[in-house]
């Protein structure tokens, strides 16, 4: 299990930052920002993604996954989006990221 950090600054801004160090040493952060009724998710860290300009696909799917009630459905949706877009992530898996997202939801 990685670390979970919610910064006080982010909390005031209707934002949440969750930091995870996964097995293998890679680190990622999920920033969930809420402005009015719009929720956006930013994923940052020292992982690898190919093609590198496809991050928008993952971040859009993660924002949509926040609306789901089933964690399994979220995992399936993200995995399917990654597969369909032909993306390759090295450093963490779909389960790691949905796990962090579900902590944010809770």
């Amino acid at each position: 299990m990685g670390e979970r950090i919610i910064t006080p600054e982010a909390a005031k801004m209707s934002s949440l930052v969750i930091e995870r160090k996964v097995k293998g040493g890679k680190l990622f952060r999920l920033r969930i920002n809420k402005t009015d009724e719009v929720i956006s998710v930013q994923l940052t860290g020292d992982f690898f993604l190919e093609p590198d300009d496809a991050m928008v696909v993952i971040e859009r799917e993660l924002a949509d996954c926040l609306k789901l009630t089933s964690r399994k459905d979220a995992e399936h949706r993200l995995a399917q989006a990654i597969d369909q877009a032909g993306l390759r992530i090295t450093g963490f898996g779909v389960v790691d990221i949905i796990d962090a997202l579900w902590e944010a939801k809770s």
Partner: peptide, 9 residues
């Protein structure tokens, strides 16, 4: 910094 890292972080 890596392609996906946050500059300020």
């Amino acid at each position: 910094i890596g392609r996906f890292q946050s500059l300020k972080d």
